[in-house]
Design a protein around this nucleic acid. Structure first.
Lengths: 233, 233
DNA sequence: ATTGCTATATATAATGA
DNA sequence: TTCATTATATATAGCAA
């Protein structure tokens, strides 16, 4: 698939291995996303890089798919053979389910895209929070880069809420731009991620779109391209 | 990627949707497997078909990857809900020991390929067992079909154990053929999956290979091709 | 870690069994 | 559901930033 054929065996050059992982992870996630949309399927992918860093893709979400997988066929264990190992495994899984359930009691709102359900509660340390912020910043940056030119300067952003990035200081970064797909955007919401960080979630109503605006399909593609940029929680 | 370009949006024709899912699932799993081997990564893929049927791929195993994902960064949840925190706290002590033990066991069980750790204990009902057997049978059948011709008749199978399929009845199916890669095969083992089913795990030592034998790479490819045939536990 | 380029290697859509 | 064919659409290996 490249300039020359390679055997599917461990790449011994660490650098090459990392580069290949990076590229193939991107491709893998794209394939998964495409399959989800094309076939109306639910797919989760969890990948640990050679360096041990986790990357995930999930539609509707990683956790929901894992849940569905773990929950499925949870019938009573057959009698008789009480295997310690199996019992431990069962208990452990049960407990983890519980923990996850507890954690997710607040996230009952099942939304279509992962970015609609970022759980700020999970970011319980400065490091984690910074990691999220960095990821979102890079995501924003990448999206802004590909916006129609008129948006690159902040024009046309239908900021109908209290956000006033435009009005203030052009040295500041433009507001964090997230959307759950043009077809459903029609809201402006603002979430204070931290005292010092104003992570506005901004979208504009369909009425504000002109021909420069990206199609829903384009948006989804962009978001998929960028999913990888966000660190797993 | 096909004869004509298609938009990445839900296929409305249910039949086409199912066919596409089947093909792309296969492709997705292959990509995942390749990335695992090339980059020494750990990847799990869980895919629910449009019909709701689960298919999984995992290296080292689905469960181990999910576990790694769920276990990671399981710090205390930030303040707020006291009940939840208390509950988690109560459970956590109980769990920690179990988990440590479990992790140890997983380390011990860590083998390179999923088929080395089929856990018979999980197949606790006739249906599930039958499902496993069917999958393995189909897997065997597919592999046998692609064996060098000399093997198609059972010749050359280095059966050094108590297995005697050759000696008995040519109407019987040949023994279940599994290998963990030629480089490491040098054992003969036999596992009684059920009273009536003799699921022999057979391999032959490197010395027995002739030029007709498949290369390790070929074997891995065959196994990957067939992974999809096994139903998720 | 990620990106762009470009020559190739692969994956897959349409079709018909 | 799967299989084979074949014309195209994509993915990616090797480089060099």
């Amino acid at each position: 698939m490249g300039k020359r054929k390679i055997a599917i065996e461990k790449l011994e050059n660490p650098n090459k291995r990392q580069v290949t992982f990076s590229k193939r992870r991107k491709g893998l996630f794209k394939k998964a996303a495409d399959a989800c949309l094309l076939c109306d399927a639910e797919i989760a992918v969890i990948a640990f890089s050679p360096a041990g860093k986790p990357y995930t893709f999930g539609h509707t979400s990683v956790d929901s798919v894992i849940d569905r997988y773990l929950t499925r066929s949870s019938g009573p264990v057959s009698g008789g053979n009480i295997n310690i190992e199996a019992e431990q495994s069962r208990l452990s899984r049960e407990i983890k389910d519980l923990e996850r359930e507890l954690k997710q009691q607040r996230e009952n709102n099942k939304s279509r895209y992962w970015w609609e359900q970022i759980d700020v509660e999970k970011y319980d340390s400065v490091d984690k929070l910074q990691s999220l912020i960095d990821g979102l910043e890079k995501l924003r940056s990448n999206i802004v880069l590909r916006l129609p030119s008129s948006f690159a300067n902040g024009e046309g952003l239908g900021s109908t809420g209290g956000d006033n990035w435009n009005d203030n200081n052009n040295d500041m970064n433009p507001p964090l731009l997230l959307t759950n797909g043009v077809s459903t955007v029609d809201y402006v919401d603002q979430a204070v991620v931290d005292d010092g960080v104003d992570a506005s979630v901004i979208a504009c109503s369909a009425e504000n779109m002109d021909d420069d605006w990206l199609s829903e399909e384009d948006w989804e593609q962009l978001m998929r391209d960028d999913i990888e940029l966000l660190p797993a929680v």
